[in-house]
Amino acid sequence: MFVCICAAVPDTEIRSCVARGARTVEEVGDACGAGTGCGSCHDRIDTFLLSAEYPTAGLPRTA
């Protein structure tokens, strides 16, 4: 699945950038070009960044 259409960057590349240490949309853009065009993918990139920072976000909590 493409996250950034302008730069043709798939989700696997975004995940790889985040795994290598990218922590902002700008850092992802520097690493792979995603988000450097029209900017419509910034929210999607942010989702990957947040899921890396908070891997259990959205999962049910146990008592």
Rank of each mutant, 00 (worst) to 15 (best):
T47R: 13
L50F: 12
A52E: 02
T62S: 10
G39H: 02
G37C: 14
S40Y: 13
T47A: 15
V3D: 09
P60I: 09
C17H: 07
T56G: 00
R20N: 15
R20Y: 05
H42K: 11
S40R: 13
R61Q: 12
E26H: 10
V28Q: 00
V25P: 12
I14A: 02
E26Y: 03
C6S: 12
S51D: 15
A52T: 05
M1A: 08
V25F: 06
I45V: 09
G37K: 06
R61H: 04
D11F: 00
H42P: 02
F2Y: 14
I14R: 06
G37Y: 09
G29P: 08
E27S: 00
L59S: 05
R61L: 13
S16N: 12
V9A: 06
R23D: 00
I45L: 15
V25E: 13
T56S: 12
E26I: 07
R23C: 01
R20G: 10
G39L: 14
C17M: 10
R61I: 06
D30L: 12
A7S: 12
G39F: 07
D11R: 08
P60T: 09
A31M: 10
A19L: 10
T24Q: 11
D43G: 13
I5W: 00
V28S: 04
E26N: 10
A34E: 02
A34M: 04
V25I: 14
T12W: 03
C38S: 04
F2L: 15
S51R: 14
G29T: 08
A63Y: 08
D43Q: 15
A63E: 15
F2W: 11
C41M: 03
G35P: 00
A22M: 06
L49P: 03
